[in-house]
Simulated scan of single mutants.
Amino acid sequence: MLFSQLVYRIAARTPRNSLPSCRWILSHRRYGHQPTFRNSNENKKHLDPFSLVGDELSLISMRLRSMVVAEIHLDTMLQVPELASAAGYFFKEGVEGKKLCPTVASLIHDDVLDDADTRRGIGSLSSVMGNKLAILAGDLLISRAFVALASLKHTEVVSLMATALKNLVSGETMQMTATFEQCCSMECYMQKTYNKTAALVSNSCKAVAYLSGQREEVATLAFEYGKNLGLAYQLIDDILDFTGTSASLGKASLTDLRNGIITAPILFAMEEFPQLRAFINSSSDNPANVDVILEYLGKSHGIQRTTELALKHASLAAAAIDSLPETHDVDATNARTALVHITQKIITRNK
């Protein structure tokens, strides 16, 4: 939501007949590229991206809460009051975190698949109300999101968000059905990561460019920003699964490892210690193997290399903003600075 608002500010003030080449971005997609932050805003004053669009975010949050809680309550209270309560579970006042309907719906479904007990520091919906009601609540939120999308009467935007939903399902299916050999592939991991996380961010950023009437070239840069931002975010998230605490994350740590899900830190560690494969393959069946895996991870450069990969994608996201046409509009310039700051903030977050 935050970066979508900032992208909209930029796109709304970007000249439609001016765009530098994005060849620089396309030529730096190989994973071996040395990560550096390259942006023209690095010497400008610090801008807090949240305060910059704070008023808009507050308004959107209130409207989302109204749409989800009030409308669902009115539509379903007489028939299924439990469903109304479930669908509004994460939209209550004081519950921090993502407030986009598709995102919340995907997290609700994710908790069902992962048998998670907590989410954002409170009980997961599935643990509180059961899997069946949680799944139905997620479905209802998705339907509400597309009702809101349809009201925009913009077919390209609806198509983009439908694509993001398709990617999300594909990514979850990949995770559930991949063979062990496929799970040990970095290419498979990055594709799954794009599908499950970055697709929603990238398509959302592209959508706001379309909504502001921008040309395809600007929309493509918005997509590149969102894609690389989403990849960087998930890479750091996978690091925090090993280095964070349950209290700071708002969910259990080591969740992926205990569920047999192989992420970037382990993939890089396996390159240094091939014997890890045997322990990882049976980690979900033998909890004692978790300690062995963590010991090997600590001796490897897995965390460091994952951080470098996240930095690389954060750098590419910043470069996409730098590649937008020049502007002398103060608001657009500030928004660009804030978007670049988000790429740095994602790398340094601890929750």
Rank of each mutant, 00 (worst) to 15 (best):
T245D: 09
S282R: 13
R305S: 13
D285M: 12
L311M: 14
D237I: 06
A269S: 14
L211C: 05
M270W: 05
A264S: 14
E272T: 08
N286C: 12
Q214D: 07
I261F: 06
G260W: 09
A288T: 11
L235G: 01
R277S: 13
N228V: 04
A219E: 03
G298F: 11
E272N: 10
T243H: 10
A219F: 06
S248V: 15
S248I: 08
G260K: 02
N289I: 08
I261R: 02
N286H: 15
D291A: 13
S300Y: 07
I239G: 01
D285C: 12
A269G: 04
E216V: 11
S212C: 14
E217N: 13
G298L: 08
I266L: 15
L221C: 10
T220E: 15
L235Y: 05
F268N: 00
L257G: 01
A288H: 14
I262G: 02
F268R: 00
L249W: 09
I261M: 11
A219K: 01
Q304V: 15
E216A: 14
T306S: 08
L257M: 12
L254T: 04
S282N: 14
V218D: 05
E295G: 13
I303A: 04
Q214I: 05
L297R: 00
A269D: 02
L211E: 04
L297A: 03
L229R: 00
N259K: 15
P287T: 05
V290W: 09
V218Q: 05
I293K: 00
Y225W: 05
N281L: 11
I239M: 04
L231H: 02
Q214P: 04
